[in-house]
């Protein structure tokens, strides 16, 4: 297993190299630069604009900038944010727990609701429960998360006054201040994920439940619960775990929208703000960071296959 992990980690290097190069080139090719956002864009003295452009080194050819930037970037040093005046890594470390909390809670909710619903829908195929589950799943996938977010705010904040409408408080404000502000974003973020997981779990389970060994197990008189959870679910889990990995990566991406709707200062909001301001070091650092996280998630998913089903090897 360790040799496999090492092989995969070594394969990260060219992937990350290609990613950082593309990210660097694309961010610089897009018109605009951070100077307007630093100084403001209304009637600023042209000399001052040129001066700041020089100070930031943005007057040099892109290739020169790239050659100077690459060796540092490959060691994880993306320089300092143009706006926050702090190392990019430090800014990301500050923001990551916020997004991790949001995505992690959304993942927990997704697993807690999506898995049992999917299993039950498969076991009770074509029942009213199954039909309702499918209606919910179709709705969940169809509703845009930002729109659902606004609906939740109107219902639970404006009308019922149950939860705050927006904002973020870290744990230094107390657990309830943190948790109460995470509920609506987590619901908005997890709705589509739950729907996806229900559908995938149901179809995987139906496929396994139709297999001969399940019929055999039932014919031998094994308890239905044991057949479903020990034999069927475990085998169905190989494809379900792929979806779970995908969902976690999606929830990191989905946080871009949800964090902006709910004014949560996580990585999603950081990327959006950085893109608007053209804060190149932040854009580059955050994108590389997310790329590495996605690679690690993929690796963990692949490793988990063999844990769930030891017959699958590492080759």
């Amino acid at each position: 297993m360790w040799a496999y992990i090492l092989r995969r980690i070594l394969a990260f290097i060219p992937t990350v190299f290609i990613a950082v190069t593309l990210i660097f080139i694309f961010t610089r090719l897009v018109p605009g630069n951070p100077v307007w956002a630093l100084l403001g864009h209304q009637a600023v003295d042209v000399d001052r604009i040129d001066e700041v452009t020089r100070e930031l080194g943005l007057d040099r050819p892109v290739l020169v900038q790239y050659v100077q930037w690459l060796p540092k970037a490959l060691t994880g040093d993306f320089g300092s944010s143009i706006f926050y005046n702090r190392p990019v890594v430090q800014v990301i470390i500050d923001r990551f727990p916020v997004t991790l909390g949001l995505a992690g809670l959304a993942m927990l909710v997704t697993l807690a609701i999506g898995l049992p619903l999917g299993v039950l829908a498969a076991v009770r195929q074509n029942s009213i429960f199954d039909n309702f589950s499918m209606i919910f799943a179709t709705l969940g996938v169809s509703l845009p998360s930002f729109w659902l977010g606004f609906l939740l705010i109107i219902l639970f904040s404006v009308t019922l006054h149950w939860f705050p409408s927006s904002g973020y408080r870290d744990l230094s404000f107390g657990f309830s201040a943190w948790f109460s502000r995470m509920i609506l974003p987590v619901l908005a973020l997890s709705a589509a994920q739950i729907a996806l997981l229900v559908r995938m779990t149901r179809s995987s389970m139906l496929e396994v439940l139709g297999q001969a060994y399940i019929v055999t197990a039932q014919a031998k008189g094994l308890k239905n619960r044991k057949v479903i959870y020990k034999h069927a679910l475990r085998n169905a889990f190989v494809s379900i775990i792929t979806i779970i990995g995908l969902i976690f990566a999606l929830s990191l991406g989905g946080s871009v929208i949800i964090e902006n709707v709910f004014a949560i200062p996580g990585l999603g909001q950081l990327i959006t703000t950085a893109a608007i301001r053209r804060d190149y070091p932040i854009i580059e650092g955050t994108m590389v960071y997310l790329t590495v996280i996605s690679l690690v998630i993929n690796l963990l998913v692949d490793i988990s296959y063999t844990i769930i089903n030891p017959r699958l090897g590492y080759d």
Binding site: F150, I154, S165, G167, A263
Partner: peptide
């Protein structure tokens, strides 16, 4: 609170 609708909702909810 950059999002316009969220800001208005926050006023209406009293935050």
């Amino acid at each position: 609170v950059p999002e316009q609708s969220t800001r208005v909702a926050g006023l209406e909810s009293g935050e």
